[in-house]
């Protein structure tokens, strides 16, 4: 496998594995909270941290982490104080973050500002061994927090007021979530880039939402999707010579379009089938009811009527009543599971 012959590719793949797993695990809560763009904003703020790191010759990953977490806490405090001014305050913080980063980087010796692209959009060659170690620590901390506090974070993201009414520390949990987002942003710095990380938090979750039935399923599926697109995108970018961040995000958006089209087609088919059944019984000679000659069969919260061996369920719509098929059953026998 020639891709694994390169040390930098091994590190890039490790980093993409971690960010692919972690970003959606945090992103699902942002989607639930309808704050999908928080990751984007914290990416801006992290850039100032990168600038400070480059200027002071400390590891930019650490300084970015500090800047992003500070920004995250500040945002939650502003949000908690009042919403109207919060919107403007967020914009100021976000654009201040990216402007600060650009200016600080331009002051760096020997024109290192050319690295800006790699921080913003990801570049697989830039992951250092220390980066991988830091990323591993961040990943473990973030995933542990999600496992420990997941249900509370869900409660707060779902219905902040209810969470407050039952005594959950809403502000604290919001700050924890924002700090998780900030950490994830930093995790993305090498492979996906600070401007594109938000996509890897949100798009896998959007895909999982289309398919999953429960919150738990959504989180698990989003992590799998994130992992796959992240590793596949990094690999593709190695062979195609494209920036890794853009490749990963395009791949996940392509998957999103594919899945949502599939789901839409499936739903349309189900609707068509339903309508065809309706047509069959459109000219139904009578409305089922007491004494219509068809055997009534209790079915959950309604009554079906036995009609030549299949069950008719009245379906009342604005235009009147038609009959849905609720499966076949032997005449006279109670339907399965409803013997009581």
């Amino acid at each position: 496998m020639d891709i694994l012959d390169y040390d930098f590719m091994q590190r890039a793949l490790l980093a993409s594995l971690m960010v692919g797993l972690v970003a959606p695990a945090v992103g699902v809560f942002l989607v639930q909270r309808r704050l999908s763009l928080l990751g984007d904003g914290l990416g801006h703020v992290a850039l100032t941290g990168v600038g400070v790191g480059v200027l002071t010759a400390t590891s930019p990953v650490w300084t970015a982490l500090v800047a992003a977490v500070l920004g995250a806490v500040l945002i939650e405090l502003v949000r908690a104080r009042g919403r109207t001014s919060g919107d403007v305050a967020l914009a100021v913080l976000f654009y201040g973050g990216i402007a600060g980063g650009v200016v600080l980087l331009s002051l760096a010796p020997r024109g290192q500002a050319t690295n800006l692209d790699s921080y913003l959009f990801g570049a697989i060659t830039t992951t250092s061994p220390e980066d991988v170690a830091v990323f591993a620590v961040i990943s473990v901390v973030v995933l542990l927090t999600v496992v420990l506090l997941g249900q509370r974070l869900y409660a707060v993201s779902d219905d902040e007021e209810y969470a407050r009414a039952v005594g959950l520390p809403v502000l604290g949990l919001n700050i924890v979530l924002a700090a998780l987002v900030a950490s994830t942003v930093v995790l993305s710095m090498r492979v996906v880039g600070l401007l594109l990380i938000s996509a890897l938090m949100i798009v896998p979750s959007a895909i999982a939402q289309l398919l999953a039935r429960s919150f738990r399923e959504t989180v698990a599926l989003a992590c799998v999707v994130g992992l796959v697109v992240s590793v596949a995108g990094t690999t593709t970018s190695f062979y195609a010579g494209t920036p890794s961040g853009g490749t990963i995000v395009l791949l996940s958006i392509a998957l999103f379009l594919l899945v949502s089209t599939g789901v839409a087609v499936r739903q349309a088919t189900a609707r068509r089938r339903h309508r065809r059944r309706v047509d069959v019984h459109d000219a139904h000679p009578h409305e089922h009811g007491d004494g219509c000659g068809h055997q009534p069969v209790p079915h959950g919260d309604h009554v079906d009527y036995d009609h030549d061996g299949h069950r008719h369920a009245p379906h009342r719509t604005g235009e009147g009543v038609h009959y849905d098929e609720h499966g076949e059953h032997p005449v006279g026998a109670p339907p399965a599971g409803r013997t009581g």
């Binding site: 993201s157 039952v166 959950l168 939402q209």
Partner: peptide, 18 residues
């Protein structure tokens, strides 16, 4: 129902967190 799917069990479980 919020943005992300959740089952009856999950939603009701939140009430127990109190």
């Amino acid at each position: 129902s919020g943005a992300v799917p959740a089952t009856v069990r999950e939603v009701v479980g939140v009430g127990r967190l109190a």
